[in-house]
């Protein structure tokens, strides 16, 4: 017993070090493995409030650019409105609710904190659970895909951006619907890579890449980027495709969180299938 007390007395610094190090590894492991951002749910409220304060000051210097990008987007959307088309037939007037059930709705939000050069980049936005945002919702910008919501506090949400080594987004080539997985390797914030595209698929440079119809998070066909370069090693089953991203993450200011109204239905159906096996 005396030896035990002596042991603790002699090595208390090491024991303290060991316990704290163990604690941080458990937090890290839990987060990496289950993507359950429990730690973040406790802390993101504090951090977001801080960044909001900073952002409200710095935002003034960028108002002109923000306005320009919003006006450009407005113009593009206005061009898609029904009254911008000349009516050539009667088919368009037959659109009604019983034919088209709304599947996606969008929640607009502002970016309050963002990084692009880390290995795992995160974006903080100024809307949270109060606005109806939940974890695992897709996020898009005016040019294309931005990321996936990881944790939500009352007024803020943290997004795992596409520039994060843990983010995988189901994508496809627009011309032939060959699908792959968009994964970032931490190299440059302008490029990402599309993995697991089968070798029999024909690929040329500048092919458009959009979100696939397998994704529960994004509507089909949201632009992601273009094929920048591609290669196929002998004996390899998959193409190596370097993708030039549409979204400029370093100047990102306005984003839309995608709410898939039918997501639960699809998920429940698929989970019963898995349970049956």
């Amino acid at each position: 017993m005396r030896n035990l007390i002596f042991f603790f007395y002699k090595y208390y610094t090491f024991i303290l070090f060991f316990i704290l190090e163990l604690f941080s590894f458990v937090v890290l492991y839990q987060y990496n493995n289950y993507q359950r951002a429990s730690f973040l749910n406790y802390t993101s409220g504090v951090a977001s409030t801080f960044y909001e304060k900073v952002n409200s000051t710095t935002n003034y210097f960028e108002l002109r650019d923000i306005n320009d990008s919003l006006m450009a987007e407005n113009a593009r959307l206005r061009a898609q409105m029904l009254n911008a088309y000349y009516q050539t037939g009667f088919t368009q007037t037959s659109i009604n609710d019983s034919v088209y059930k709304q599947q996606y709705s969008y929640i607009a939000a502002n970016v309050v904190n963002n990084s692009v050069t880390k290995l795992n980049n995160y974006i903080t936005i100024d809307k949270g659970s109060e606005a109806g945002i939940e974890p695992d919702m897709g996020v898009i910008g005016s040019n294309g895909v931005v990321g996936i919501v990881t944790s939500v506090s009352e007024h803020y949400a943290t997004i795992r951006s596409a520039l994060n080594s843990n983010t995988k987004i189901s994508c496809m080539l627009k011309k032939n619907n060959a699908f792959g997985s968009l994964e970032w390797n931490g190299d440059s914030p302008k490029f990402s890579s599309l993995k697991y595209v089968n070798k029999h698929v024909e690929i040329t440079s500048n092919d458009e890449i959009v979100t696939s119809n397998y994704s529960k998070l994004f509507p089909q066909g949201i632009p992601v980027g273009r094929v920048f370069s591609h290669s196929l090693d002998a004996g390899d089953n998959f193409h190596y495709i370097k993708v030039e991203l549409n979204t400029d993450f370093s100047t990102l200011k306005n984003v839309y969180v995608v709410k898939n109204i039918l997501k639960n239905e699809q998920q429940n159906l698929e989970s019963t299938l898995k349970g049956g096996n």
Binding site: F25, V27, Y31, A37, F39, A47, Y51, S115
Partner: peptide, 16 residues
């Protein structure tokens, strides 16, 4: 860690 959304990462390295 709180301000950079990286649970445990900076903690482990700094304690070390």
């Amino acid at each position: 860690d709180t301000f950079s959304s990286t649970p445990g990462l900076h903690m482990a390295a700094t304690i070390f």
